[in-house]
């Protein structure tokens, strides 16, 4: 198994206008919290809150493109959204191998996203299978 407990990975992501627009175009979630600046402010946020599931797209990129092997598949993913993400935010993504289960060719990661203020905006776990 190429992974071992404690292996660490770091990536940087930018929640750009292009990603935001693309997400809305594809999935049609135009809830005013995401699209109406005044609505978001009236509800206690600094501006339009980005869709949390955009972060799942970043995780997909991490698993699919950033690991040292490509023969992987996501079995399970859990995410908690802790703080809002806004348009143009730059996020640091940290992942650490939290478990290696060779009997079932499975690896678990703990991860978190931090914003520029080093505040955790989301955290969770991912379980992947490594197929032969």
């Amino acid at each position: 198994m190429i992974f071992k407990e404690g292996d660490k990975f770091i990536e940087k992501f930018h929640l750009s206008e292009k990603i935001y627009d693309g997400f809305i175009t594809l999935f049609k979630d135009r809830n005013p919290l995401h699209t109406d600046e005044q609505f978001a402010i009236d509800n206690g946020f600094k501006g339009r809150v980005m869709h949390g599931n955009i972060l799942n797209g970043f995780i997909s990129f991490f698993i699919g493109e950033c690991l040292p092997v490509k023969n992987v598949i996501i079995h399970l993913q859990e995410i908690q959204f802790k703080n809002p993400v806004y348009l143009d935010d730059r996020l640091d993504f940290f992942a650490e191998v939290s478990g290696v289960f060779e009997s079932v060719n499975t690896v678990e990661f703990k991860f978190n996203f931090k914003n520029i203020e080093t505040k955790t905006v989301a955290k969770g776990k991912i379980q992947i299978g490594v197929f032969k």
Partner: peptide, 24 residues
């Protein structure tokens, strides 16, 4: 087959042990 993987992972973690694929 997928939940079997989840079960094995949970059992290995709970009992703090590791199986081999042959055992499973």
């Amino acid at each position: 087959s997928l939940t079997h993987i989840q079960l094995v992972v949970a059992i290995e973690r709970e009992f703090n042990l590791r199986f081999t694929s042959m055992e499973i």
